[in-house]
Design a protein around this nucleic acid. Structure first.
Lengths: 123, 123
DNA sequence: TAGAAACCTGACGTTGACGTCAGAGGTAGC
DNA sequence: GCTACCTCTGACGTCAACGTCAGGTTTCTA
């Protein structure tokens, strides 16, 4: 299939697909005239890439993990990177929980001040 | 203290502190020669700014709510904004939870492939 | 055999919070 | 008063994952 069909079947923009190729994440056969042609497997490939992006993994890291798909082997190194990323996501969640508490205390204080009739200085 | 000391005490770069001032988030006294001087309270101020940034709140919004947050007083408008940001933080946490699930499914697939010597899952 | 639709390669735009550099002046220890 | 470091104001650079435009070629359809 050509790039437009792959875009339609994956829900990813044509520009994004060209970007994936630019980053080395996706390959294509070229016709005489230079147009990209893909096999059906490209659909799964793109979906995998999207899944990794959805997990907040950068292009560079995805590129590093792709040999897992290409060779069919998940190296310990890739597993380590995945676990590291998982830890960082957990940390982000914990940070946001702290932020939420901070916001809540600010809101609570603000509500109290507001109820007591103390105005806020104009910004 | 001068800007270098404030940077050291808060762990924020000198450039960032000047940026905060540029955005109207932080003020300073100027010496004859134009150098910035800060009181001890600036340390807390910078930390508060960092917390709000960590909550994904933009400079413009921080500028709008900072006076109220500092004094613990808030107009209904600022209260509304605070609640909006609280919702956005909750959403961010939910998104990250989804990210964790994505990661776990990728990790599970990778582990399985690694243990069985079977190719990585197609998606 | 048109003409529309899809495709190609650059290359600049987007967004925010800074990084970094240049050139000049200020400050502090000895 | 020398020297090393600190600070100043611009102003351009950076990063990520594309969006979007320009100008030209290829493919499909009527």
């Amino acid at each position: 299939m050509r790039i437009g069909e792959l875009a339609e079947r994956t829900g990813v923009s044509v520009r994004a697909l060209r970007y994936y190729e630019e980053q080395g994440l996706l390959t294509s056969e070229r016709s005489e005239s230079g147009q990209r042609h893909y096999s059906d497997k490209a659909v799964d490939r793109v979906r995998l890439i999207q899944q990794l992006y959805a997990a907040g993994i950068s292009s560079a890291s995805i590129l590093e993990m792709l040999p897992c798909v290409v060779t069919g082997e998940a190296s310990p190194h890739v597993l380590t990177k995945l676990h590291e990323h998982r830890s960082s996501v957990v940390r982000q969640i914990e940070d946001l929980r702290g932020t939420l508490q901070q916001l809540d205390s600010v809101i609570a204080g603000a509500v109290k001040a507001h109820e007591s009739g103390v105005p806020c200085p104009p910004a």
